[in-house]
């Protein structure tokens, strides 16, 4: 589903070159739930923005759903983002001027979908996250957890091949975070491929697989003993 080989991302200024990702390799299979972890500044978010085609990369190869994306133009990248990728952001990123229904509708409109199909998909995905009754509410009228559920509904409405989640519970309290995480697990059980960036060992423990990044490179989790132990401890305490 997602395969990066020897990928690098360099930010250049007049005086300095900074490697955000260096010789980066990852392979996520269809139906997997992968947690990408690492300390702050390790390159997690850069990985996510490249994986989501929000940013280009400097070197290496990236295949998404079998397509090499490095030579795609801006319009093609937009189309792939729209049709194949669902985003869940830490800050929810709902559009404050639009109500819940219209927010979920945004990616579907860019796909040029007919109104009847849009409505059906929106209501289905809102029902799935338990917010069908809040369709006419504005984001400011919802709790953080509800806003993130709307964002998940928006990501799901387009039936993406890949869900990319950037610290999806980072702005939520424990109870709300648990609810969102259970929802993601449920979505995964239904067959979705999920790549979640997090620095929370408890969340990482609930994914099928952990990919740990340090200094822009994938490393063995054991190379970060504190995080390694935290993940193991979380797994041991997990009710599953």
């Amino acid at each position: 589903m997602l395969k990066m080989t020897h990928l690098s991302k360099v930010y250049r200024t007049e005086v300095v070159e900074t490697y955000a990702l260096r010789d980066f390799n990852i392979n996520v299979n269809e139906g997997e739930f992968v947690a990408v972890t690492g300390p702050s500044g390790s390159g997690k978010t850069t990985f996510l923005t490249i994986a989501g085609l929000l940013e280009t990369f400097t070197g290496g190869q990236y295949h998404l759903d079998g397509v090499e994306v490095s030579n795609l133009n801006d319009n093609e990248r937009s189309r792939i983002r729209n049709e194949k990728i669902g985003f869940i952001f830490q800050a929810f990123n709902l559009i404050p001027d639009l109500n819940v229904f219209d927010n979920v509708e945004v990616p579907l409109r860019y796909r040029g979908m007919k109104a009847a199909e849009r409505k059906e998909r929106i209501m289905n995905s809102l029902e799935r996250v338990g917010l069908a009754s809040r369709a006419k509410h504005y984001p400011a009228e919802l709790s953080g957890g509800q806003q993130q559920r709307v964002a998940i509904a928006r990501a799901l409405a387009g039936s993406p091949r890949l869900l990319l989640a950037d610290e999806p519970t980072g702005n939520l309290d424990t109870q709300m975070a648990r609810g969102v995480m259970e929802l993601l697990e449920e979505i995964h059980r239904e067959g979705a491929t999920i790549v979640m960036v997090t620095h929370d060992p408890e969340l990482a423990a609930r994914a099928q697989r952990n990919v740990h990044i340090i200094d822009g490179q994938v490393v063995d989790l054991a190379e970060d003993p504190r995080f390694h132990h935290a993940v193991h401890a979380a797994r041991a305490n997990s009710p599953a």
């Binding site: 189309r79 952001f89 559009i95 990616p107 860019y110 387009g158």
Partner: peptide, 14 residues
């Protein structure tokens, strides 16, 4: 918001 729209599939023309 524009960035979010672009992330969700809006082209520059959109």
């Amino acid at each position: 918001q524009i960035g979010v729209r672009r992330a969700l599939g809006a082209t520059k023309r959109d």
